[in-house]
Structures are given as C-alpha cells and as structure tokens.
C-alpha cells in the first residue's frame, strides 16, 4: 500500500504535538529548578528585613547593604577571614591532591606488582567504611597534639583540613586509573626502547596526554573545601574565635535556628559570593566535567 499524503500529515502533526508537550514539560522543570536559585539571589538584595520572614517572593526594597555587611568584621561574622582560609586550602588541596591521586592511579594502571590487587581491594573496602567512624577517631587522635600550654595544636587549625584531605587522596584513584587504562601502553613501550625511565614516561608522556582527567581531578579537589561541611565542622568547631573556620562552617552557622532571624539575607549574599565563581568555573569547564562524570560511571 502506498503511503498517502494524509499519513504524512498526521505524522507531522504528531511530531509537532510531541515537541510542544516536551517543551512544556522541560520549561516547567527548568522553572522548578531555577526558583530556589532566583530566590537566593534576589533575597541577597533584600532591604526590608534581615531575617527569613517575608511576605513576598521578591524583595520590596532592593539594596546591596547585605553584601557590605557580609564583609564587615564582627564577633559572629568573619566572612573575609573564612574566604581567605577556604581559598588557601582549596588551592593547596588542588595541587597536592591532584598530584597524589594521579601518582597512585598511574602506578596502579601501569605497574604490575605483588601488592597491587590487594591495594585496590583494600582501597575499595576502606571507601565503604562510614566516613564518620574515621572522623570521630581523627578528632580524638588530633587532640593528642597540644602545645606547651595544653591547647590543641591541630584541632581548630585550618591547615589540618588540608592534611586530612591530602592523606585521603590515595584512595580516590578509580576514575583517573580508568582513564590511564585507556591510554595505549605502546606509548610507554616505545619510550622505554628509546631509553626513557619510568619517571620520564610519567611526567613527559602520560601527564601531557591526560589533560581532561587532570582538570577533572583538580576541579574536584578545588571544590572539596567549599562543599565540605562535616569534617570541617568536626575539626574547626573547637575554635570559638571563628578565626580558622571555612566558608561552609561559617555559613551553616548563620542559618542556625538562633541566628536565622538576624542573618538570613547576609547568609544568602554569602552563598551568592561563593557560588558565582564556582558556577563560572564549572560552566567553562563543562566539557571536562561531563567527561569525568561519565568516565567514572562506566568504569563503575
């Protein structure tokens, strides 16, 4: 039977209706997803009240006062200090953790030694322990280190966080190892024939070829201190002067039930301040993010 013009017409209509329906759903979803973000941003410019209570979705009085107040030093609020702390930790963590992760991933991908399989299995099992068990224990153990006056040296010290992040880096090798596995080993062999040492192969051949995974790992490491609340709270919570806190610890404190009435708009402006740069970095490096997430998934 020959297809008639009518069939094509109905097909075409179906196609268009499907398109309209899809657009409607998609735009509705997009609105749901964007509302909290819009609300955060607009609230950070709200002038009529500092607390959470509000009668309208959008502010009635627009102001930048919240941003100004955010950077004013106070007893509760030391945002500038927290920002510097977090940035310092994030940058150091980015370099150290990325380097360690890549080293471990490379060894496990390219060398065949006796402890290789056990190491990978142990890493997997350790990763399955609830992080809190170690966290509580680390808290108690770090308490051992005190100065002459008996005050804790490592608790309430921002750099301790870096130490802990970096020391855990040897366990997060799975994604980058998967990436190294896909790089052909004939490259290594050719270089070995030319008399290169394994060290030279790693630094001069493999690393330059691994730009996507380096960027992905570095980005993840850079984000850790901006997103990590729990560990930071455990380690830094002892510091009542708030000098050593990071942004997440400080921001969370502002939404504490006792403070939310006075600090909510300031909290949202703090959120905007840290979210904007991170979002920009993400969007500009979107390609690598997508690659990293998918690579991690398929290697599973």
């Amino acid at each position: 039977m020959k297809p008639k013009a009518k069939d094509f017409k109905s097909l075409r209509r179906k196609y268009i209706i499907d398109g309209i329906a899809s657009y409607t759903v998609l735009i509705a979803l997009a609105i749901i997803w964007i509302i909290p973000i819009v609300w955060t941003v607009t609230t950070s410019f709200r002038g009529e009240s500092a607390g959470l209570i509000t009668q309208s979705f959008f502010p009635k009085v627009w102001t930048v006062k919240n941003y100004v107040n955010l950077f004013k030093e106070g007893r509760i609020l030391l945002f500038k200090r927290w920002l510097i702390n977090t940035l310092a930790i994030a940058l150091c963590n980015m370099f150290i953790t990325t380097f360690i992760t890549l080293c471990v991933a490379y060894s496990l991908s390219r060398f065949r030694f006796k402890m290789r399989r056990p190491y990978m299995n142990i890493a997997l099992i350790l990763g399955m322990f609830p992080g809190f068990m170690a966290m509580t224990a680390i808290y108690i153990i770090l308490g051992i280190f005190t100065d002459a006056q008996g005050d804790p040296l490592l608790l309430g010290n921002t750099w301790t966080l870096l130490l802990i992040y970096a020391s855990g880096a040897g366990l997060g090798f799975f994604v980058s190892k998967g990436y190294f596995d896909t790089l052909s080993i004939s490259l290594d062999e050719a270089a070995l024939l030319d008399g290169a040492s394994q060290m030279a192969i790693f630094f001069k051949i493999i690393l330059p070829l691994s730009k996507p995974i380096i960027i992905y790992t570095a980005l993840m490491a850079f984000m850790t201190p901006w997103a990590d609340y729990v560990l930071a709270r455990v380690i830094l919570g002892a510091d009542s002067s708030r000098q050593s806190w990071t942004v997440p610890v400080g921001l969370y404190d502002l939404t504490d039930p006792t403070r939310i009435a006075d600090y909510f708009t300031i909290f949202t402006s703090g959120c905007v301040i840290i979210a904007v740069p991170i979002v920009l970095i993400y969007l500009s490096l979107q390609r690598f993010m997508v690659e990293g997430i998918s690579a991690g998934a398929v290697k599973g």
């Binding site: 997009a30 997803w33 964007i34 909290p36 973000i37 609300w39 955060t40 959470l52 984000m223 901006w226 997103a227 609340y229 997440p248 921001l251 969370y252 939404t255 939310i260 909510f264 909290f267 949202t268 959120c271 840290i274 979210a275 991170i278 979002v279 970095i281 993400y282 969007l283 979107q286 993010m289």
Partner: peptide
C-alpha cells in the same frame, strides 16, 4: 541550566531549601 545545581555547593542549595 540543570548543571547549575551540581555546580553550586550542596551546603548552599540544601540550606536554602531548608529556609
């Protein structure tokens, strides 16, 4: 647009949702 929610630190999004 949807990637935004991954990019923003969870602390921010979740505390805002709480509020």
């Amino acid at each position: 647009l949807f990637l935004l929610t991954i990019a923003i630190p969870q602390l921010v999004t979740l505390r805002v949702m709480y509020a």
